[in-house]
């Protein structure tokens, strides 16, 4: 029997026999054979979806990360959890994913297997099924190793109506846990910085916590704090709702190692990425009990209230320092570059 070569070749993306062998011998091995629909399109029965809700949520995202592996995760887990989390924020129960792999010529097969396995595990624990997909191979140098796109479909139960237009003055703003862990784990994995950091990425599905929140009630808005971190999400909330957001800096949970990494490189923990931590705006009278519920879940131990919606400075995020002074928190800008001064 001819085995698949150790490194990905261009001919494996060409649609011929080599490609079929890559699919059959490698990629399909990591997907659920029953649910994978090898036809041109995956099909679903409408009535089975309609049983769990009255609206569909549909989202897509493309994942690149350098390096591909880091403490607490890798591009495979990221590609599943990222899309699952986008669905969860809209109130949906995530159901189906598509999976597109774009692989660089020469990519080690063993590596690919590793990421596929991680992907499979993440999908399993997030209770989503990969139903369709695509594979392309790009010439060496055209991409950085592996790029993954996933699209996701979920069903929104009829009693859930989160939306930015629902925010009210006095609502409570919470975060679901420590912030900046993912961004810091990536910095720790980057060889150029030569940092060895005791921080694990928060890369995980947020559905266990968002399901608790939606079941509890009082949820106005949920957003996972990915690129741009907490600072970006808070600014998005302020600018799209045209309300003010006021946050107490001392209330924001940041691990010491995240803080020291930021001190060393001149970064702000508030603009570091997260991959399994979210911001939620809750009706003030339900926030206390909602937080108690979150904290009973192992993923929610550090969920905490960090501020509130105000009518003072519409569109702006105010940050109250430990010293009682107030400053504006701006949208983070572009690529984070380590500073010396």
């Amino acid at each position: 029997m001819i085995s698949v070569p150790e490194h990905i070749t261009l001919s494996q993306g060409a649609g011929g026999r080599d490609m079929q062998r890559l699919l059959d011998d490698v990629i399909y091995q990591y997907l659920d054979p029953l649910s994978l629909q090898r036809d041109d399109a995956a099909t679903f029965a409408l009535n089975s979806l309609a049983q769990s809700g009255d609206r569909l949520a549909f989202t897509t995202d493309t994942y690149t990360v350098s390096p591909l592996r880091f403490r607490g995760g890798d591009i495979g887990a990221l590609a599943v959890n990222g899309t699952v989390n986008d669905l969860a924020c809209s109130g949906a129960i995530p159901r189906f994913l598509s999976l597109s792999l774009i692989i660089e010529e020469g990519f080690a097969l063993e590596e690919l297997r590793f990421y596929l396995q991680s992907l499979q595990q993440a999908a399993h624990s997030a209770e989503v099924t990969i139903v369709t997909g695509d594979t392309k191979v790009m010439p060496r140098g055209a991409i950085d190793g592996l790029v993954i796109n996933t699209s996701g479909l979920g069903v929104i139960p009829s009693d859930r109506q989160p939306g930015i237009d629902r925010l009210k003055t006095g609502d409570t703003v919470i975060v679901s846990g420590f912030i900046g862990d993912h961004g810091t784990a990536i910095l720790g994995a980057r060889s150029d910085l030569q940092l060895d950091i005791d921080v694990t990425s928060d890369c995980k599905a947020i559905t266990p916590l968002t399901e608790l929140l939606f079941a509890h009630g009082g949820v106005r808005f949920v957003r996972d704090a990915t690129r741009g971190g907490l600072a970006a999400v808070l600014n998005e909330i302020a600018s799209s709702s045209q309300q003010g957001v006021r946050v107490r800096e001392t209330a924001i949970p940041v691990r010491p190692a995240v803080r020291s990494t930021c001190e060393l490189l001149g970064f702000d923990p508030l603009s570091l990425a997260n991959e399994g931590t979210f911001v939620a705006v809750l009706a003030a009278d339900t926030a206390g009990s909602a937080l108690e519920e979150l904290r009973r879940h192992p993923h929610g131990l550090h969920a905490t209230a960090i501020g509130e919606i105000t009518d003072r400075r519409p569109g702006k995020v105010e940050l109250e320092s430990a010293f009682g002074a107030t400053r504006l928190l701006d949208m983070p800008r572009g690529e984070l570059l380590p500073r010396i001064c």
Binding site: L195, D196, I197, V199, R259, S260, E263
Partner: peptide, 8 residues
């Protein structure tokens, strides 16, 4: 080392 971050 600074609080869990090490570098040469």
């Amino acid at each position: 080392e600074i609080a869990g971050v090490r570098r040469e």
